[in-house]
Simulated scan of single mutants.
Amino acid sequence: MARPLIADIDLNALRHNYCLARDLAPHSQSVAVLKADAYGHGAVACARALEDLAPAFAVACLEEAETLRAAGIEAPIVLLEGIFEAPELERVDALGLWVAVHSEWQIEALLSFTPRRPIPVWLKVDSGMHRLGFPPAQAADIWARLQAAPDHVADLHLMSHFATADALEPGYFRRQLDLLNALAKSLDAPTCLANSPATLAWPEAHGAWNRPGVMLYGSDPLEGANDASRSLVPVMTLRSEIIAVREIDAGEPVGYGGRFKAPRPTRIGVVACGYGDGYDRHAVDGTPLLVDGQRVGLAGKVSMDMLIVDITDLPSAGIGSEVVLWGQAANGEVLSVDEVARYCDTISYTLLTGVLPRAPRRYHGG
């Protein structure tokens, strides 16, 4: 019998979430972000599930785009970080990719390269994230340089990245948006600004393009959920089974370091999943899981291959019982990856992208 840990990927849920993003912004086009292997869900399978819906895809780098092209994905693909060295432009041209530009050397490389057809370019401006992008004061000159090179550049757009679109306090977000709106108006530039939280919560940020990412996979990026984010459906269910059951006395320690001590005579279940599969070792005692669709708590530190749950209050649970680490149980109960992430002092992105290949993906729907 195979080890029971599986990452179930519901491609119908992915399509639902994409349609939600699209319908929230009916005057925008929505590029589906597939970077980091579609946030751990499998970029090729997710692209195939969305290729009749999404007009374009986005990845971080050339290697990710090459994987999609090799699988037969023909839709436009934008490199959100652009090129990392000038010779990559040969492959960009050959594969028909779009590129973001955020540094002077990228501009120089692009304008020194002769493509077979002009390359669509998204000019990235640093509106306050202070990560990548040109200072806003330089944007007009760079925009003019790119516009003056129609043999090299096509479909020029303005892009940026919001630092706090997910936050309840909107002050900094509005500061960024006001700057970008003024800049776009002065340049008469189409924009791509809205990430997942801005797509969900800030229609005034919707531009010619939006770029929903983590919301496509059913994770709510907002500090305070709204009606739209509550409509998201989890795409990944990380599920396993109980492989052993133990009964221990009150006061007995469980797991490495004995962090959990049984508060009463306790029945524990050993689950085939650990940090060697990508489950976060920082999970604290009480981190929720679903056993046979019922909530239980983690008991003790996560091991490489196993973790332990307290099933004292579930007398019917035993060897072979379904365990959902996050996602949807067989009885329909849902445990959000966002809730699990809070118990691990992290965010859903790290959990989803951290699921390792040892947890095989099983696809259905789509």
Rank of each mutant, 00 (worst) to 15 (best):
L146S: 00
A165D: 11
T237F: 03
G171L: 12
S160C: 03
N195C: 06
A167W: 05
V233F: 05
K185E: 14
Y172E: 10
S219V: 08
H161P: 03
A149R: 13
A205F: 02
P197L: 05
A225R: 14
A139H: 11
C192P: 02
N210M: 06
L156N: 10
M236D: 00
R145Q: 13
P170N: 11
A225P: 14
S160E: 04
A154I: 02
A198C: 07
G213P: 06
A198Y: 09
L187T: 03
E223D: 12
A201K: 10
A139G: 07
D220S: 11
A198Q: 10
D227P: 04
R211W: 09
S160R: 10
P197V: 02
S219T: 06
N181R: 15
P212T: 07
F162W: 08
L179K: 14
G207H: 10
E169W: 12
F173N: 02
M215V: 03
D166R: 15
R145H: 06
P203F: 04
S186K: 13
L232F: 06
G224D: 08
A165W: 09
H152L: 07
R230Y: 02
H157D: 00
S196G: 04
R211K: 12
T237C: 03
S160G: 12
D220G: 07
C192E: 06
Q147M: 12
L232H: 05
M215K: 10
E204V: 05
A201H: 12
V233Q: 15
A225T: 03
D227A: 12
C192V: 10
Q176T: 04
T199D: 00
F173E: 01
D188T: 08
S160L: 02
A154S: 15
C192H: 10
M236C: 13
L177S: 07
P203D: 02
L200M: 12
V214D: 02
G213N: 09
T199Y: 04
L222I: 01
C192K: 10
L168K: 14
A189P: 07
C192L: 15
L168V: 15
H152Q: 14
P190M: 07
M215D: 01
H157C: 09
M215S: 14
K185D: 13
C192S: 13
M215H: 07
A149L: 10
P170F: 09
V233I: 14
P170Y: 09
L232M: 06
S219Y: 11
T164W: 12
L193F: 13
P190G: 05
H152E: 03
N210Y: 09
S219M: 08
D227V: 02
P221Y: 09
V235H: 11
A201T: 01
Q176W: 06
G224V: 07
T199G: 01
G218S: 11
L146W: 04
A163Q: 13
L146E: 01
G213F: 05
T191P: 09
W143N: 01
L156M: 05
A163D: 09
D155R: 15
S186E: 10
L177I: 05
A225D: 05
E223A: 13
T199W: 03
T199N: 14
A165R: 12
D166W: 15
P203T: 04
S186Q: 13
R230D: 05
A225E: 08
N181Q: 15
A144I: 00
A205L: 04
